[in-house]
Nucleic acid binder design. Sequence first.
DNA 1: AGTCCTCATAAAATCGATTTTTTTATCGAT
DNA 2: ATCGATAAAAAAATCGATTTTATGAGGACT
Lengths: 219, 219
Amino acid sequence: MTLPDSASATASSQVFDALKKDLIRGKFKAGEKLAISTLKSHYRVGLSPLREALNRLSAYGLLEQVNQRGFRVPAMRLEELNDIANLRSQLECMALTQAFQNGDAEWESLLVAAHHRLRRADEMPEQIEEWEQAHLRFHRALLAACGSTWLLRFIEQLHDQFDRYRRMAPPNPTVRGELDAQHGTLVEHALNRDIAAGRALLDDHIRLSHDVAKGCCQP
Amino acid sequence: MTLPDSASATASSQVFDALKKDLIRGKFKAGEKLAISTLKSHYRVGLSPLREALNRLSAYGLLEQVNQRGFRVPAMRLEELNDIANLRSQLECMALTQAFQNGDAEWESLLVAAHHRLRRADEMPEQIEEWEQAHLRFHRALLAACGSTWLLRFIEQLHDQFDRYRRMAPPNPTVRGELDAQHGTLVEHALNRDIAAGRALLDDHIRLSHDVAKGCCQP
DNA sequence: AGTCCTCATAAAATCGATTTTTTTATCGAT
DNA sequence: ATCGATAAAAAAATCGATTTTATGAGGACT
């Protein structure tokens, strides 16, 4: 008897998820070449599902593939971080505008709920992964009502890219407190449908995270 | 002795390219489920490279993958076409602004060259694939100098999505002539660095293509 | 010394077969 | 007749082995 899993995970998708998480977490060195046989034993999967996951990850932009010489973790370049942060700011402000216009009561309550979970996670600084997940979900919830599937897709992709840099950088408790406070204010602006204030604050928020993330490129 | 190929293509990347082309061309029915064994014999490749290509294509958004039940060609929905066209317009106008600001002489000459090739292709209406390639390259060249790798990446992805709809729609010779003319005017605006005119025209251009492409959803 | 070749090794890519899961077909019970 | 269970067939996913290609060490030649 098999469990009625939400979506019975194949080995491919499991190792995809695990690898994605580890790549964003910074478990691998930037620029490192991945040794397939090592990954195989580490993630306990066969060659085929592993290669399928690696192929998906390079199409997603978390790996680089060169044709006859395997897979490589992308380098961390300040120039690219700037590109990611700038674009992220533009796209998220675009989405915020639409979300504030289209969002209904259901959106509001999901956003408030996501924010509540994030504040709970703020209180337990030792559980990093829980906070990271709550944080990602909060930002998703903020823009979820924007109405554009493709915009959300690109924003998610940029967010993952951005996090790869941010999580590599040394933490800054002062700034961290400020960032946390901004989340609450963002919710207020959302409930007030104050687009101008929301955009300005989200832009600040990303700029501030950007400053933190820069710490990973020039030590 | 092996040929010093530009980048020795693996079976995976070859079938990826071929499948991508066929998907955009509309060789498969929308919503169709892909029969792996059929593809295998059609593209003359083994299972592993084929599956790797399919995985890449679903990460790219040209296929949908459901975990234990294979790969499916995405349906064509008017709503999605609208989303793609809107976002494409926004992102391309963004890129155009930056390209007009940053573009140097090299950019100008590559753009003029790409336009020249496109006009040549216009003259031979029977060679569709050649025109399609020239057209894609022209639009790439127009925005190439924008300076943002990630923006270009997303635009390329949206362009592929858009083309899947456009190429399914019945051709409209009248509009087609107008669209062709717009390409020339876009080059003029680029050389004049007239950002406002360029954005307005590019927006029109996409809107007009959008109208044509709509023909595929409601026959 | 430096460059170019050759061979040995390691890694990537591919194949064919096997295992697992889904889909379809069949049959019996209500 | 419809529903549900079961068995057979088909398809997807995975494995292990093989083939192909890149990498690196050694040696001959200029």
